[in-house]
Amino acid sequence: MEQRNPRSRRHLCKLLGYSRQACYKQIKTEERSRMESGLLLAEVARIREVQPRAGGRKLLHMLQSYIREHKLKIGMDAFFELLREHDLLVSGRKRRVPRTTVSSHPYYKYANLVKGLTPVAPNQLWVSDITYIRLREGFAYLSLVTDAYSRKIVGFELSDRPSAKGCLTALKMALADNPSRDGQLIHHSDRGVQYCSGAYTGLLQGHRIAISMTQSGDPRENALAERVNGILKGELLQKRYKHHRQARPLIRAAIRIYNDDRPHSSINLLTPTSAHQGKGELKRLWKSRYKRDKEKEATADK
Rank of each mutant, 00 (worst) to 15 (best):
K109Y: 05
R99A: 09
M35R: 14
K152Y: 07
A210N: 09
L88F: 06
E69N: 11
L117F: 15
Q21A: 04
M62C: 11
L59Q: 12
K71S: 15
L269D: 13
E137P: 01
G278V: 01
Y141S: 07
K94D: 09
R245H: 14
A199R: 08
K294L: 14
D77C: 11
Q246C: 09
I251E: 00
T169D: 12
Y200W: 08
T100Q: 12
E221R: 06
C167N: 07
K58L: 13
R95H: 12
K172L: 09
P122E: 01
P263N: 04
N268Y: 00
H207R: 12
I47Q: 12
R95P: 06
R220W: 14
R9I: 13
M35P: 02
L232S: 02
H70K: 15
E137C: 05
F80K: 10
Q215Y: 02
K279Y: 06
R96H: 08
T100P: 01
G166Q: 08
Y141E: 05
A275D: 02
E226Q: 13
S189R: 08
N229I: 00
S128Y: 04
N112S: 10
L142G: 07
Y132C: 03
R32S: 13
Y108Q: 15
D261A: 06
E235D: 10
T201M: 12
S189I: 03
S33P: 00
R289Y: 12
L171S: 09
Q51V: 14
R99E: 08
P52E: 06
S216T: 15
V228A: 09
D87Q: 11
D177L: 15
L142T: 07
T131W: 01
K152S: 11
A254Y: 00
R151G: 03
D260I: 00
L270N: 10
H105W: 03
A148R: 02
L72V: 04
L117I: 07
P162W: 02
A247H: 05
R68L: 14
K242L: 15
P162T: 01
I257R: 06
Q21S: 04
G230N: 11
R99I: 10
R220A: 15
V97N: 09
R9Q: 14
V154D: 05
N112F: 08
S197H: 10
S180N: 12
W286Q: 05
K239R: 15
Y108V: 12
G116Q: 10
N112C: 13
A111G: 11
L232A: 02
Y18M: 14
L204D: 08
R248K: 15
I130S: 03
I267M: 04
N178Y: 03
D147V: 00
L144M: 13
Q51Y: 15
D190E: 05
R46S: 15
H276L: 05
K294Q: 15
H70F: 12
Q194N: 08
L142Y: 10
G138A: 10
R99G: 09
R9M: 14
W286H: 07
L113T: 07
A140L: 06
Y149E: 10
I153G: 07
H187S: 11
H86K: 08
E2M: 08
I251W: 00
I267L: 04
G280L: 00
L16R: 06
F139N: 04
E36W: 09
A121I: 01
A148L: 13
K291F: 09
